[in-house]
Design a protein around this nucleic acid. Structure first.
Length: 340
DNA sequence: TTCCGACAGTGGGGTCGCAAT
DNA sequence: ATTGCGACCCCACTATCGGAA
């Protein structure tokens, strides 16, 4: 029988007999700018897997936000959480793999999982939803953060507190981008944990935008009109046209129809760029002459030099395709971990 | 009345696992 | 052995609808 601490009793919370089967998580709304003002606190946005750590009946489980049980994939972290003597406790956080520069990398995490080399993965806890059977979701974020810091006081080294700072959002965001971080998450200090996507949590991402040559398009699926995605590429300094991936979002219905009819007129039999082996196309591809340019926003380049999270911003009519030269040797981020 | 939040639907890269080829 | 496909993870975005303001 665990005693409710006096501190714990002061924050709103109802003692529960058992943890709920499914706990919906809070999700952030994407914004272009970080909020300023002292009623906001700010954290680093980690690039990994969102995971609830549930400790109950002497064992620990790691579940995704859609309630998938991923415990077996993270033996070291599961063991670390099981060492907490706090039944009825739920942490909210992110499983990440840090590169040598200390920055979380989704690609490095996927690689670690695919090789089952999970020993150096880290869990950054940023919220505490239950503690010793008490539901904390109805209490203010700052109170939960206080309890979280205390609960992690003697935690194993692979379970860490995600630090935050109060106020100064704009400055914090530009600092984060300067350090090549993915972005920041800003949260209202007094907000409750609602388990929904709501504007009390705001994510602001450090994004790249680049221009690309349109080399083809895929056919629309189901109720989609015009085209599905644009296939884009770029010229290397040596003049070779390289494939950079598909851009399938950011278009209005009006643009999809209008632009497809333009592309139709410049179709050609064969692709102009060489596609990497094993490139998966969910729909039939139409190749076009490299005549149009697209402005594309994206988070980063993947290991295979393909755009991650691309979205279409607009056409560039003021430039010639041949001007689109991207030197990926310079843009290439420093790789951590080795692949053999 | 207008606005906004929630939801459905479409699209992306990467990994895994299974079935068809 | 290879390929296709769906279901997960990570997501961005548009269009729509009903309730709040």
């Amino acid at each position: 029988m665990v005693k409710v601490q006096p501190k714990l009793r002061r924050v709103a919370g109802i003692r529960q007999a058992a943890l709920p089967k499914h706990i919906p998580v809070d999700l952030a709304v994407l914004e272009k700018q970080a909020p300023d003002g002292d009623d906001w606190l700010h954290e680093i946005k980690f690039d990994g897997y969102r995971m609830l750590a549930r400790i109950e009946n002497g064992r620990a489980r790691l579940v995704t936000r859609n309630d998938q049980d991923w415990t077996a994939r993270f033996p070291e972290l599961t063991e670390a959480f099981a060492s907490f003597d706090r039944s009825g406790t739920v942490f909210d956080g992110e499983i990440v793999r840090l590169k040598q520069d200390g920055i979380s990398s989704f690609a490095a995490l996927q690689e670690a999982l695919s090789n089952e080399e999970t020993a150096d993965l880290v869990y950054y806890a940023f919220d505490l939803l239950f503690l010793d059977g008490v539901d904390l979701r109805g209490s203010a974020l700052e109170s939960r953060k206080q309890l979280l810091a205390k609960a992690l006081g003697d935690a194993p080294a692979n379970i860490r507190l995600s630090e935050h700072r109060v106020g100064g959002g704009k400055g914090f965001f530009s600092q984060a981008c300067g350090l090549k971080l993915e972005g920041i998450i800003s949260k209202r200090r007094h907000s409750l944990y609602s388990g929904t996507r709501n504007p009390d949590w705001i994510k602001v991402k450090c994004l790249n935008t680049e221009e690309f040559v349109i080399i083809g398009y895929t056919e629309p699926q189901r109720s989609r009109v015009g085209f599905g995605a644009l296939l884009v590429g770029y010229y290397t300094p040596s003049g070779e046209l390289k494939y950079a991936g598909k851009v399938g979002t950011g278009y209005s219905r009006e643009f999809l129809e209008a632009f497809q009819s333009k592309l139709q007129r410049i179709e050609q039999e064969k692709p102009t760029a060489v596609l990497p082996k094993g490139t998966y196309m969910r729909a039939r591809v139409h190749w076009v002459k490299p005549r149009y340019l697209a402005q594309v926003e994206f988070t980063e380049w993947t290991r295979d030099n393909i755009l991650r999270h691309p979205s279409f911003l607009g056409l560039r009519e003021d430039k010639h395709p041949r001007e689109i030269i991207v030197d990926r040797r310079r843009v290439e981020p420093v790789k951590a971990g080795r692949r053999s």
